[in-house]
Computed example of a mutant assay.
Amino acid sequence: MRKMIRVEQPRCLALRGSEWTERYNTARRLNPAATFRWYSRACYADIRTALQATTQHHCAFCDGFIGSEGRETIEHFCPKSRFPEQAFAWENLFPCCDVCQSKKLETYHELLIKPDEEDYQFENYFICNYGSGELQPAPDASEFHRLKAEKTIEVYGLNLPVRKKARIRELKKFRAVGETMHIDEFPYRYYLAP
């Protein structure tokens, strides 16, 4: 996870988010099985564009490329099924690959790390094992930060075998091209950065 600097929410969400939240909550009160939907395709496209601009088209959680390494989705950090009042809240929406989203599903835990937290810094929570490709809680982190790192790794599946192999592969590519490519052109930037 890299630090994500959140940009201003799209105008359509600022104007209609409260209305859509009330609409969704009303539908759920009338029918608890009511499903979530984006009420405007154009606004949904604007939200996706704004979110992806904040991460240079990387997943906010695994940092893999969205669209080529995983299908593009919008993650509701606090799941909309459990927190319907946050279904259209800008600060609850993240660009996400379908692997992370499929692993997390409707899980929520207060220990999960949000990559846009003001004080979030990768090295305060995680270290990279360059031999195995694994992310691990930083050994010198506080107990609380280690617990947050462990829970985030678990819930988003950040150490799935395919991800560990992909990190090692990308590190080899990154070392081979040296400084001829910008780090944003690679997935797993936290793993590649010195």
Rank of each mutant, 00 (worst) to 15 (best):
R41H: 09
Q52C: 15
Q86Y: 13
E123I: 14
S18M: 11
D63K: 05
V99E: 00
A42V: 11
T26K: 13
I74P: 02
Y108T: 04
D63F: 06
T54W: 05
G64C: 02
D63I: 06
E91Y: 06
F83P: 01
Q121A: 04
V99H: 02
S102W: 00
C12F: 03
N124R: 14
D63E: 15
C43M: 08
A34W: 10
L105E: 07
I47F: 11
E117H: 03
L93S: 06
A27C: 04
P115D: 05
A33W: 13
N92P: 05
G70Y: 08
R16F: 07
Y24R: 00
D116I: 02
Q56I: 10
L93N: 06
A87S: 12
C97N: 07
Y39A: 12
T26V: 10
K104Q: 02
T107I: 09
A53W: 00
A14W: 08
N31G: 01
C97K: 07
S81V: 10
N92R: 04
E118Y: 01
D98A: 08
A42W: 06
G70C: 05
Y39D: 15
A53T: 05
Y24W: 01
C78F: 15
S68C: 13
A53C: 07
P79H: 04
Y125Q: 02
E69F: 00
K114H: 13
G67D: 10
R71T: 12
F122I: 03
A33V: 08
K104H: 03
R16C: 09
C96K: 08
Y125C: 01
T73S: 05
Q52F: 12
E106W: 00
C43A: 09
E69G: 02
P79I: 04
P95V: 00
T35H: 03
H58D: 13
R37V: 05
P84S: 12
E69P: 00
N124H: 13
K80V: 03
T49Y: 12
L15D: 13
A53N: 11
E19T: 04
A34D: 02
W20S: 14
E19Q: 09
H57Y: 09
Q56D: 14
A89S: 08
E75I: 12
G17F: 03
C43G: 07
C96H: 06
S40A: 01
R71A: 10
T73C: 02
C96A: 10
D46Q: 12
R23T: 04
Q121C: 04
E110H: 15
F88I: 04
C100E: 09
S102F: 00
A33F: 15
F94V: 06
E85L: 07
G17A: 12
